[in-house]
Amino acid sequence: MPSPINLNLNYENPIKIAEGIYWVGFCDEESGLHCNPYLIVDGDEAVVIDGGSRPDFPTVMTKILKTGTDPSDIRALIYHHYDPDLCGSVSDYEDIIERDDLRIMSTLENNFFIRHYGPSSALVDIAEYNDRFTFSSGRTLAFIRTPYAHSAGSFITYDELSGVVFTSDLFGSYGREWELFIIFDDLCKNCTPSDPCPHDKPYCPMDDILTFHKMIMPSGKALRHAAKQILGTPAGMAAPQHGSVIPVEGDFRTIGSRLLSLADVGIDRIVKEEGDT
């Protein structure tokens, strides 16, 4: 059953998910892999998180403009890893933002690859800023490393003001049934997904999340370390780059605990070490 939080949402417009934070993504009903760029606005300053692919750029930038944000207000583009669904439009952003001091922020390991998208702005290693970005108001974004989840330089971003953690591929999902917000009922939180559903539900979002992590994350060890980093924050909402926003803290922490114990992740599905069953 759709959550009431999804009623009357117009996906043609930006959608505010928290204080100063907007989803500016593209709702593609034909795709199972939904990508979620986010805009954070603080006064007359803004940053874009995981800005999106080049084909999606006109849609994303139109939504940014609809928030009332002038492109020249965007001080930084933050990229959690280097895949084209995040970084493909970086040059398009530069062309419209037109700031000499625009920063493209990621980790050193990611910047080795982001440079191949042809950006002209400074590629900044987040370590140079002590893994933080601070607006003029004092609002702070904390960057938390999640190596090999799924790239060597992967990290996530925690907004200390809103309590939103931007989790990149972590806590994401793949599935043709999609809504921007997802809320789990008690029957689904600890259920073992199976076909058919033991509760006679037509769709299992938990299965989509767990299967996505098995396919995308390279190993259970990398996933467990990353999940611990996220669960170690005081976040109340998870905003992944794929799938749906998880607005209820209890839900996202339940999912986190399931990821900690998830078996057969990545290479672990294929190669068994001696002694493994």
Rank of each mutant, 00 (worst) to 15 (best):
I21D: 04
P198W: 09
D268Q: 01
F135W: 04
F113E: 10
K272G: 13
A222W: 00
D195H: 07
R269M: 14
V245Y: 00
E273T: 10
G52C: 07
G175A: 09
I182E: 08
S3W: 08
R54S: 08
G138Q: 13
L262W: 00
D186T: 13
G43N: 13
P4E: 15
D100T: 06
T140K: 14
S173L: 00
G20I: 04
L7P: 01
D208T: 09
K16W: 04
T233W: 02
G243S: 05
P147E: 11
F26L: 13
G43M: 09
E94A: 07
S136F: 02
D251F: 04
P2F: 11
A122G: 06
K189V: 15
A263F: 06
F166Q: 06
A238Y: 02
D101K: 04
P2V: 15
V24N: 11
I182G: 05
V124C: 08
E29Q: 14
G68V: 13
I78F: 10
Y117A: 04
G88M: 07
P14S: 13
N110D: 10
A127W: 00
G25M: 02
G250N: 03
N110K: 06
A238R: 00
H80R: 05
A142R: 13
D42L: 03
F166E: 07
V60T: 15
A226I: 03
F112Q: 13
A46N: 04
I209L: 14
D159R: 00
R75K: 15
E12L: 12
A122M: 07
L223S: 05
S173Y: 00
R103M: 15
N130H: 14
E19T: 13
N13P: 12
